[in-house]
Structure formats: C-alpha cells, structure tokens
Design a protein around this nucleic acid. Sequence first.
DNA 1: ATGAAAGCGCTAACAT
DNA 2: ATGTTAGCGCTTTCAT
Lengths: 347, 347
Amino acid sequence: MPVATSIKPGPRPTMVDVARVAGVSVTTVSYVLGGRSGDPTASRISDGTRRRVLDAVEEIGYRVNEPARNLRRNRTDRVLLLMDRLSSPYEQHLATDIESRLIETGRSLSVMVCTTVERLDHCLGMVRTGLADGAVVQCRAVAGAQAVLDAYAREHIAMVAISNVLRPNGFDVISNDEAPAIEEAVDALVAAGHHRLGFLAHDAVTDLPDSRMEVVRRRLAVHGIDLPDAMVRSGARDRLAAFASTRELLGLPRPPTALFAASDTGAISAIWAALAAGRRVPEDLAVVGCGNIDECRVTVPQLSSAGPDRPDFSPIAAMLLDRLANPSFAESRHVHLPWTFFPRQSS
Amino acid sequence: MPVATSIKPGPRPTMVDVARVAGVSVTTVSYVLGGRSGDPTASRISDGTRRRVLDAVEEIGYRVNEPARNLRRNRTDRVLLLMDRLSSPYEQHLATDIESRLIETGRSLSVMVCTTVERLDHCLGMVRTGLADGAVVQCRAVAGAQAVLDAYAREHIAMVAISNVLRPNGFDVISNDEAPAIEEAVDALVAAGHHRLGFLAHDAVTDLPDSRMEVVRRRLAVHGIDLPDAMVRSGARDRLAAFASTRELLGLPRPPTALFAASDTGAISAIWAALAAGRRVPEDLAVVGCGNIDECRVTVPQLSSAGPDRPDFSPIAAMLLDRLANPSFAESRHVHLPWTFFPRQSS
DNA sequence: ATGAAAGCGCTAACAT
DNA sequence: ATGTTAGCGCTTTCAT
C-alpha cells in the first residue's frame, strides 16, 4: 500500500524546502509537481532533475498547500455536491458516480447537505468564494431554489441541477420524465378496479406542492376519480413517518384500497403498516412507489414502482465539465431522463 | 429570504474594491469582515465605519476569497467527514449532527466517501494539504486504517475516529460496546431453543474479519454450539446481497433456525427472503439485526436488534473541537458507547 | 533546461 | 480609531 509513509512531524515543508533539498529552484519544483500533462512545458524538466525533485518530496514528506495553489490558480479542481439529504440509495449512487467521473479529470467531489434555501445560498456562496469550481445541486425539497440558482448563474458559477421543477437559466437541468410512468401506474390501479386511492406525499400539503401527487390527481380526474386532501398524507421521505401516515389512512372510515407513495421507501413502510394492521397486500391495499430502487425487488410482496430503469447520472458530470471548461458557457441545457412503470406483486 | 440578491457579473471584487468604495483602508475592511467577536480588536472599528464598509460590501456584492484567507490564516474552519458510504440512516444522522455542532462554532462540514485505504490516505492528505482543519473518520469497512491514522496523527492532524477496531494513538476513538448486547441476543436465541444459527456478515469471511461474528461465535461456543463457516454468508451491507445470501442459507439441507445479521438492513432483507421462501418469522426463522435503527420498529414482524438505545454523536464534535483548539493535544481518548439488546417480534 | 521575481487576496503585526 | 506593509505558499511570465 502506497500509504502515508514518510510523514514527519514539525512545521509543514514548503516548496522552498523541496527546492533546497533537491538543489533546484522553486520554479522547477512547481513544474515537476504542477502535473500539466500534455502541456508543452511538460518537457522543460530533464528526467534527472525530475527524479531529484520527486526524491526530495518523498524525503521530506512534502505535500502541496492547496489554499496557496488555489489562490494562485484561481481554481480548486473541486466540485460541490449539494443534497437535501444523504440517506437514500439514490444519493449514494449519485455521489459515487459523479465522483468517479470527476476523478478521471483530476478533480474531486465534496458533499454538503442543504435542507433550506438559506443554506443552499450559503453553500453556493462558498463556491463563489473559492471553495469549489462548480456545483451539482440535488435539493428537491428546497423551495425557492430557482431564484438562488438564477442569481449564481448570473455570476457564471458552473452549476447543474437535478430537478423536475427548476428551469435551466444559465445552468443546466436534468429532470426525470415522471409523468408518463406515473400515469401508467394510475391507469393500472384504476383498471384493477381501484377507485379509492390514497397518496403518501413527501411533505405536508401546505408545504411544497408535491408534483407527483399533482400528476396522480390529474390522471385520476381523467378517470372521473377524485383524490381528496383527506386521502393525502405526508412523510414519504421518512420510513417511520410513512408508517404512521399509512396507519392513519387505513384507520379512516372508508380507507383507500390503493396507495400511491411519492417514494419507494415510503411505499415499503406503507406495506408494513398494512401488514401490521392485518391487511393483505395487494388484496386489501395495493401499493405503488416511486423511484424503482433496488429494494423493490426484495420486498414481500415485491414493490410496484414508477422510476428509471436504472439511474443514469452520466449527463450530470458531462454537462458540469463543459461548464468548467468554458466559464461563459452560453447554452442552458435541459436533459430529460425516461421513467417507466414496473408493475410487481404489490399492485 | 436573505438570498443572493446583489450579485453582479464581472470579475469578482476584492477587499481593495470594498475599501475604495467605503473610503477606508483594506485593514479596516478586513477587521470588519474578520468577525473576531469577543476579540479585543473588535472595538477598533467605529460604528459609522463599520456601516460604510458593510454597505460597500452589499453594494458591490463582495464575498471573501476563501483560499486567500485560508492561506493567510493557515486554517479553513472546515472539517472533513470521511465515510465509507452514505446510504444508511446512521450516516445521515452522523453528518447532520456533527454539522450542526460545527456550525455553532462557525465551522462547516464537508463529506467525502472513502472506501479504500488509498482513498482514506488521499482524503486525510487533503486536510494536511489545507483543505480542512481536521477530520472525523467513519470507515469501518476500510482495512489498514490504523496505520494511516497513526501517520497523520504524528503530523498533528486533528482526528476523531468512530470504530471498534482502531486504537486511539494521537487521535480519539469512539467505539460501541457491542459485545454485551450481542451476547445477550445470542443467549436469548439459545434460550429459545435455537442451536442452528446462521450469520450474515458485512464482508466475505476472507476479507475483513467480522468482529460481530467473532462475538457471536465465541458466545455460542460458551453454550457448546458451533458456528461453522458454511453457515456464514456475506452481504449485510447491501439489501440485495443480504436477500440472496439468506436465500442460500435457507436452501441448505439443514438450514439455520435463527439468523444473526451484522446490520439491521441486512436483517430486514433476511426477513423478506424468509417470507419469500414461504417461511414464517420468527417461527421458522428467528432474525436478529445490529444497529437498532428506527426502521426496526416498523417492519413486520418488528426486528429484534442489538444496538444503541439512541445514537449519541455528541462526544465526536466535542473531542474534535478540543483538538482543533489545541493542535498539540496530548491525550488520546477512547469513548465507549453502550449497546443494548432490544428483543422484538422477529426473535 | 532552468531560475528570478512578481503577484494571487488576504491577515496581522506594527505604526500613527 | 484607522492605515502601512510584509508576507502566507504557490504559479507563471520572462529571462537566461
């Protein structure tokens, strides 16, 4: 393992120290360590000199001082990933995928959690402030994000947002084409004879309007079926809250015969709540989730879900890299990712 | 909302611009913005001047340049949280809790994912390199971490590790006192008449030795019961893998009558695998998990689990702050957090 | 193929 | 109460 071997205590050595030990100038050290590969200046250092410098670095345990380098270069080669939470499998995927693509281009990723607009503003301010060169924003739960992103885009901050509500405006947007899949799921439930549906939303109805709920409601209307607010509960984001909300719905005088959840994790809790209440799934309560996470295929019964076949995050890093390469990138792109309805045992 | 209002395009303004607009020196600007509250120098600025400076900042949309400030101050007021994955509820908790405590002291947190020693070394190198002032390390799946942390501790990098295997050595360690609770769970299973146990480990037996499995094995031995390798499967970390592993165990000629999983999420998948195979839980297969996550209380049947009553992360930030305040902090502390066995319906 | 030197934007000792 | 100034460690232009 090439791991932290030659670290010595004491004040951190600088390039001056390396230069002294190697018997060369700091310029030379900088050129050796700058790693501008493919650069014409790469060949200005002879192999012997390069070796001496690298040996000196090794000997005294030198590491470049990032703030100094960043100050001088006026960039950090770092990208921020702003998310409104960490805990879903989706976020895990997103982070590792983007990171691996950034690493290929010599960059790195750091993650910050933003649950409020103020915090989002603060974090984007940090990239403006030199903490990072750009940001990927995945904050569906944050209301008012459009204005913030608009403002930073005006400042030419490189940003890509993953959102179904944000409109590209100096930044790019990846959105999921959820509606067709959700409508298909609704149609399937109606075709199976359901006409009393419940909906498990992410947030309280009074908060952020739940776009998935709106799609469901509109589609039900097409079938002449109503989705009254009394049949809507919040908490899809939280496994415990989803359980409690479903129990509430099942306790209604005329409980729903089918439940549509804005998330798969919420739907799974709903299945448990139904089973715990002595109902059968799908016979007494059909359940459909959103997201099509892996877990859908191991639950009992397996969870029907509307979601991407397999999440594809590749456009995200690609678009951000475009913007990083060209800070005054003019075009604002909008990429739509397809969703599909995957009927399984729970509906 | 106090959000990104006065951002203007063009080259980012510096303190010199603020000073010019406000009609004061850069020193004054620095003192106004430095925010050394409680500092004797805080009172050197008159209220009128302070106002003029803040107005100028607002007017031209100035934001401090972090790399420059960090270079000069030789600190970043930033802490790194290194985790081997993001997706569990535990990680979500950890991150938000530590962050809120850091914010109270004017610091911020960024998260990086480290699944290998090399990456851990790289990320800790980044704090040495000036990306952050210290790190919290939560990488149970990373073998060889001890040597890396030892090395950086020698460099006086402020670190706190959450681990049951790392020994404090220039850094602090938080560990969970898992053994008593796990032993109690084993005793309960044995008392219930189980003598054929399966174990769902985090990793393959050939990889990292699973400390929880060792405890289980030793405790079973006390009861004169063997835990053969044939009854051990890996994949507790991954819901799909855990499902497949459990199915394998149940397919054995003499399947286990009880299953101990190294994680709650693994145990939940195991319950599903059992149900999917037509077994009843706990009658045909008793299941116990580790971690006592919230989800245990909503599964059907509710999951018995060994874990903390409620996770308490407060010592982590506290210890790190001590080290940040005093870089040559001598003591290496080891905090033990208690675990309890919570019997529920699944066993 | 290598070196000297001018800053990047900021902070803080040291004036006044 | 406010200003002058010398760097922090690095990159990069321009010489040689």
